[in-house]
Design a protein around this nucleic acid. Sequence first.
DNA 1: TAAACCATGTAATCAGTTACATGATTGC
DNA 2: GCAATCATGTAACTGATTACATGGTTTA
Lengths: 180, 180
Amino acid sequence: MKTNHTKFVIMGILTTNCRSGYQIKQFIDQSLNHFWKLSYGQIYPTLKQIVEEGLATVQYASQEDKPDKKEYFLTEKGKEAFYAWLEKPLEEIPVEKNNVLLKIFFSRHQSKAKTIEHLSYYKEKLQERYVTYESIEWMISSGLSELPDAQYWLFTLDYGKRVTKAAMEWCEATANKLKE
Amino acid sequence: MKTNHTKFVIMGILTTNCRSGYQIKQFIDQSLNHFWKLSYGQIYPTLKQIVEEGLATVQYASQEDKPDKKEYFLTEKGKEAFYAWLEKPLEEIPVEKNNVLLKIFFSRHQSKAKTIEHLSYYKEKLQERYVTYESIEWMISSGLSELPDAQYWLFTLDYGKRVTKAAMEWCEATANKLKE
DNA sequence: TAAACCATGTAATCAGTTACATGATTGC
DNA sequence: GCAATCATGTAACTGATTACATGGTTTA
């Protein structure tokens, strides 16, 4: 039932102009980082697999100022597979694994001061995250790079901001309840 | 760096009055389900390990109306280890792996109608989740069972509700932007 | 007697991270 | 010559799910 999305994420990134494993990693770290991560240990073997399945082709590209690299291009079959994945109904919707809530859940066994400390740390981290989203948002919407995907990328950032803001407000509200 | 929380979740549940592997599973499915999951394949081996490390003891309990079971009790050492984990600073805060955002991110390659369809499906699922939270909240705060942890459990539900609501609003707003 | 639930466990598999290994190129 | 960055890859390990295996008890 549960589909592994790794292959499709990589194929999706190939539809932007990222073509090598190294570039894909950079792209993910900069853009998808708030809702998806991939390591080299996944990227390179998956690229290999994608080629084996005839979903992409490789070309060796020599660069003047940098080491050589491999460039991957989706085949027609690859594009079709990607579109099919995209349109496929969602079924499983995500469940966040939240270690902060885990500790809050059991916080009866701890001083209120300590719990408030955890909450304020969490809020701080969320605040940093929020600022990051804002700066990425600003970069995209400044339109310097004329991105065809811009609108959709902004949607995901908007999601990140809304959810992060809600979480921050919860931190605040919960800490206040504990201070009463 | 990254600590595995599985052991501590189970130890935490042992501080409530869940004592067997089966009960622990039930407890998680009912209470922690919105931010933590565990399978039997984790629970039973971990319980074994907890005993081996001297963090808990086992007792065989025969029941009249049900099959026999094993009951686990935290030792002093176990309690101390649990409290230490609880108070330990958070460091890594969670990053949600969100397959819905993944599809939205690449939705340039798809009709707006299809994207709106995904959004409305997601919203529907979030709505169901929200209702579930409300019903659990109601159960806890009705106070029928006089739970010592009640306050903290309600905090985590409040988090779930706030974040889910924010996500639902995003679905609505994003679908509207696409309809313009 | 079959279905539903209570109860415990293991083995195979899958997904993902981390550490390791290698090497080119550039700029200080 | 060294650090930083670009670039590709693998092997070992960890975490977690799933499928399988077993069997007791209750109720319809």
